[in-house]
């Protein structure tokens, strides 16, 4: 389990702490969506999870290892994979398989095992058969999936993704969402940072940060039911959820999570 306990992070020269009294757990096979406005502390919290950043106060532990323990840091990082927003910033190989192999190869994983890991990782993100493809010829959605494969080749127990779909179009977003869903079902713990509630609708748990503090923890549906609150925290509600809330307020019986126009029109004119 990733266990973030009562953590405070203060950046030098900053007025208020980036995180203040934040606690969060992530278990294998669980998916947690982390939402909040720009500057709410989401990325800071993500960086704590694999010791890219250490807390000013409080503790972060990964499967019992304290991230401040310098001897454990490589172990921590091999358990917690990290994927950033811009795939261009995290691709290093000249062909897809080299990029995926970069991490485990550096750790001295033997050739046979390396081959298996690379192929498995590419398969898991739906890029099987693209081993020799040059990354710059991939679409943005494929690039981001390649970056995820690079993290998977380290066989992580947890995957932390910092707005992995922000640069992608609708198709790319759907591709990445499907991969994350599969990984969770296979037992990987997923911490998905986003500011779109629509993307978090499938998560087991929703955590919202505002100005460095956790202001909501619960189900996605719970927050959809409180649009004013979501707006105050800088969380984007799906517009259709706001529309259906408007219809419900006028006595029309439509489900709160009816997100496509066809079903809504069907319900109104049935």
């Amino acid at each position: 389990m990733i266990d973030v306990r009562d953590v405070m992070v203060v950046y030098p020269g900053a007025g208020r702490p980036a995180l203040d009294g934040v606690s969060l757990t992530l278990s294998p096979g669980e998916s947690v969506a982390l939402l909040g406005a720009n500057g709410s502390g989401k990325s800071t919290l993500a960086r704590l999870c694999n010791a890219l950043l250490l807390p000013s106060a409080g503790t972060v532990s990964v499967d019992g290892m304290d991230t401040r323990d310098a001897a454990a840091v490589w172990d921590v990082r091999s358990r917690v994979g990290f994927v950033q927003q811009n795939p261009e910033n995290q691709i290093v190989g000249t062909v897809a398989e080299e990029d995926v192999a970069f991490g485990p190869e550096n750790l001295g994983v033997p050739a046979g095992e390396l081959r298996r890991r690379v192929d498995d990782a590419l398969e898991a993100v739906g890029l099987a058969g693209m081993q020799r493809r040059e990354p710059h010829l991939l679409s943005d959605g494929q690039k981001q999936r390649l970056a995820i494969a690079g993290a998977l080749a380290m066989c992580p127990a947890y995957l932390v993704l910092d707005e992995p779909t922000a640069m992608l179009d609708g198709t790319g977003r759907a591709e990445v969402a499907a991969v994350l869903q599969t990984l969770r079902d296979e037992g990987v713990g997923i911490l998905h940072i986003t500011h779109q509630l629509a993307e978090a609708a499938d998560a087991d748990r929703l955590v919202v940060l505002s100005e460095g503090r956790i202001v909501y923890e619960g189900t996605p549906l719970g927050l959809i039911g409180e649009p004013e609150r979501a707006e105050r925290y800088g969380v984007d509600l799906p517009h259709m959820a706001v529309l259906t809330a408007g219809l419900r307020a006028r006595g029309i019986d439509v489900p709160a999570l009816m997100l496509d126009a066809e079903s809504v029109v069907e319900a109104l004119w049935r």
Partner: peptide
Amino acid sequence: PREAARVLM
């Protein structure tokens, strides 16, 4: 979206 709900109603 709130306006859309009004329009539809």
